[in-house]
Amino acid sequence: MLKTFMYYGNNTTTDFEEIKKYDVVLTTYSTLTMDSRSLNHVMNTEWRRVILDVAHAIKNPNSKQSRVVTELKAKRRWVVTGFTSFAF
């Protein structure tokens, strides 16, 4: 079973030894761009894999969100998006 850490809201930390205990770390674009107290730790960690959902959120390469996520260090990078249509 994968151990998951939710890194956002009141659950951010600068203790990356603690975060290394988890298999999956979930966060948001806004947490990465606004959490300046721990951003250096996030940016200096080499992640095994970074998976970005809602890829259209970073389509503007000049946006802060786009710049921050492209600066993340990772062995693998995945960008996914999807479109769901509902009939009413």
Rank of each mutant, 00 (worst) to 15 (best):
M1W: 03
M1G: 13
L2V: 09
T4S: 01
M6V: 00
N10K: 11
N10M: 10
T12C: 14
T12D: 05
T12W: 01
T13A: 08
T14L: 04
T14S: 12
D15Q: 06
D15K: 08
D15Y: 03
E17T: 07
E17S: 05
E17R: 01
E18S: 06
E18Q: 10
I19Q: 00
K20L: 02
Y22L: 05
Y22F: 14
D23T: 01
D23V: 01
V25L: 07
L26V: 11
L26S: 00
T27Q: 05
T27W: 06
T28K: 07
T28D: 04
T28Q: 06
Y29A: 09
Y29R: 10
S30H: 09
T31G: 05
T31S: 11
T31H: 12
L32C: 12
L32V: 08
L32M: 13
L32Y: 14
L32T: 01
T33R: 09
T33H: 07
T33K: 10
M34W: 14
M34I: 08
M34Q: 13
M34C: 11
D35P: 02
D35Y: 14
S36V: 15
S36G: 03
R37G: 09
R37W: 13
R37C: 04
R37A: 10
S38Q: 08
L39E: 13
L39F: 12
L39N: 08
L39G: 03
N40W: 09
H41G: 01
H41M: 08
H41Q: 12
H41E: 14
V42Y: 03
M43L: 15
N44K: 02
N44C: 07
N44M: 06
T45R: 03
T45F: 02
E46Y: 05
E46N: 06
W47K: 06
W47A: 01
R48Q: 04
R49V: 11
R49F: 02
V50K: 03
V50N: 01
I51C: 13
I51M: 05
L52V: 07
L52Q: 04
D53I: 13
A57G: 10
I58F: 10
K59F: 02
K59D: 12
N60T: 09
P61H: 07
P61W: 06
N62M: 11
N62F: 12
S63L: 01
S63N: 12
K64I: 13
K64M: 08
Q65N: 15
Q65I: 01
S66V: 12
S66A: 15
R67P: 05
V68P: 01
V68E: 02
V68G: 03
V68N: 08
V69L: 04
T70P: 05
E71V: 05
E71G: 09
E71K: 13
L72C: 11
L72T: 04
K73C: 07
K73E: 03
K73H: 07
K73D: 00
A74Q: 01
K75D: 11
K75M: 09
K75V: 05
K75Y: 04
K75F: 06
K75S: 04
R76E: 13
R76A: 07
R76H: 15
R77S: 09
V80K: 09
V80A: 00
G82M: 09
F83M: 10
T84H: 08
S85R: 10
S85L: 15
F86E: 10
A87M: 11
F88S: 11
F88I: 14
